[in-house]
């Protein structure tokens, strides 16, 4: 609920080239984005447009070829716990329990700052926040996909990040679970007020969760195509929202960007195309309002 306009996170003129046998492939071209503290920003776009690449650059996992990312006045060029990532497929260490997975992160971030008891309390607190307190000592292979993703979020939150980066966090989940997690996410964000960048495929998810929706143009040389400001009051209720005019407007704006102005021309398979996952493509194409299938 910040009103002050500060450049909390600045993505400035970011371009990235990936080497290919045919020479460098420009995946992103001059991506520009300013994000305020506490803002929830979604990035949406077709598969292969480089949404995840943007996130990875912010996370510090990729280095921009040109331009850069500035967080609170300091340039980002390597990964760090102040920009916690929730990965597409939970990425929990399968040999550790939910508790131990969070513990690994907590120990790393709060070593010397929290006592053992404090850490323990903090880990349990975060797991409770994502409603995982009942299965703290289970291994990832003993819990469901949604639960795994909750643990993944708890792990990220437990790092007390300045920016929370969500890379299609709910993409692999069934619709019901997804809805539950989206609600949880809104609840958490309301409590903690984190700055969040979320990559998504799902138009409804973007509108429901975001303050702003950044729509990426298609690659190669993808860039920010347009931005939709979502002026819906919080807390938001998904059922009530469905009839809201603003909701419909935002939804339409995004859909028309995606399917009319930037309908997929070709399936671009670049070296970095990590989004070739049919399950997620289906989510988009199955939308009733889809005019033209990709």
């Amino acid at each position: 609920m910040t009103t002050k306009h500060t450049d909390h996170l600045l993505i400035s003129q970011v371009s990235i080239d990936f080497p290919t046998p045919q020479g460098p492939f420009r995946a992103l071209d001059k991506v520009d984005l300013r994000i305020e503290k506490g803002e929830f920003v979604s990035i949406i776009g077709h598969s292969g447009c480089g949404k995840s690449t943007v996130l990875n650059i912010v996370a510090g996992l990729y280095q921009a070829t040109e331009g850069g990312v500035i967080l609170d006045g300091r340039e980002v060029n390597e990964p760090g716990p102040e920009r916690a990532v929730v990965f597409q497929n939970h990425s929990l260490l399968p040999w550790l329990t939910a508790y131990e997975n969070v513990e690994l992160a907590v120990k790393q971030v709060f070593k010397g700052k929290k006592s053992k008891a404090e850490m323990r309390e903090w880990i349990e607190h975060n797991l409770t926040l994502v409603h995982m307190d009942h299965a703290m000592h289970k291994r990832p292979d003993e819990i469901s996909g949604g639960m795994k993703q909750r643990v993944g979020i708890a792990r990220a939150l437990a790092m007390q990040p300045q920016v929370l980066l969500l890379d299609e966090p709910f993409g692999a989940l069934d619709a019901l679970t997804r809805a539950h997690l989206q609600d949880s996410m809104m609840e958490i964000q309301a409590t903690l007020g984190n700055t969040v960048i979320m990559i998504t495929h799902d138009v409804d998810e973007a509108v429901l969760l975001s303050d702003r929706i950044v729509m990426m143009s298609n690659g190669p040389a993808a860039s920010v195509g347009d931005i939709v400001q979502v002026n819906l009051p919080r807390p938001r209720n998904r059922v009530a929202m469905a009839e809201s005019v603003e909701y419909m407007r935002c939804r339409k704006a995004v859909l028309s960007f995606l399917y009319e102005r930037h309908g997929r021309k070709t399936v671009s398979v670049s070296v970095e195309d990590e989004e070739v996952q049919p399950a997620r493509d289906n989510i988009v194409t199955l939308k009733p309002s889809t005019a033209k299938a990709a």
Partner: peptide
């Protein structure tokens, strides 16, 4: 993914080997 987790957590080389690589 696990390597990225390790990077984001900034695990030391030794912790990386112990917690991620070995298991």
């Amino acid at each position: 993914d696990l390597q990225n987790v390790s990077k984001v957590l900034r695990l030391s080389w030794w912790t990386h080997v112990r917690k991620i690589v070995l298991p």
